[in-house]
């Protein structure tokens, strides 16, 4: 068993964090952090898309897990979410990349 753990750990996906050696010595930031308007809007959007069956929570998770490892750990929680929500909306054709580009250009 003792030898099995490292071998097994090397197989994990980067979001599958239980017992991950690289975080075992990292301090837990236990201070309260108030959510920003950005955070709350993303959270609300996720709930609405779920309730309207545009995107399930499993689809949200899958596209969060698809974020490359370095980016996954660099992005805050809700920044991962908006990236995954956008990814899902594009994949499903709810919005097109052309629409998204023109909305971004119009900013």
């Amino acid at each position: 068993m003792e030898q099995e753990t490292p071998a097994k750990e090397s197989q994990r996906s980067h979001h599958d964090l239980g017992g991950a050696s690289k975080f075992m010595c990292e301090a837990v930031d236990t201070e309260p952090h108030a959510l920003t308007d950005f955070d709350k809007e993303v959270d609300a959007l996720r709930q609405i898309l779920g309730a309207k069956e545009v995107m399930s929570v499993d689809e949200l998770r899958r596209c969060i897990e698809a974020i490359p490892e370095e980016e996954y750990h660099r992005l805050s929680y809700y920044r991962r979410w908006i990236r995954s929500i956008t990814d899902n909306l594009l994949r499903k054709g709810v919005i097109t990349e052309a629409e998204l580009r023109s909305a971004l250009d119009a900013q």
Binding site: E4, K8, E9, R12, D16, G18, R61, R62, A66
Partner: peptide, 18 residues
């Protein structure tokens, strides 16, 4: 280890496999 074979989303943590 389906995640090693291609796109997958699973709710079974790696540490309990086997």
């Amino acid at each position: 280890w389906p995640e090693r074979r291609g796109p997958a989303h699973i709710r079974t943590p790696y540490y309990v496999r086997g």
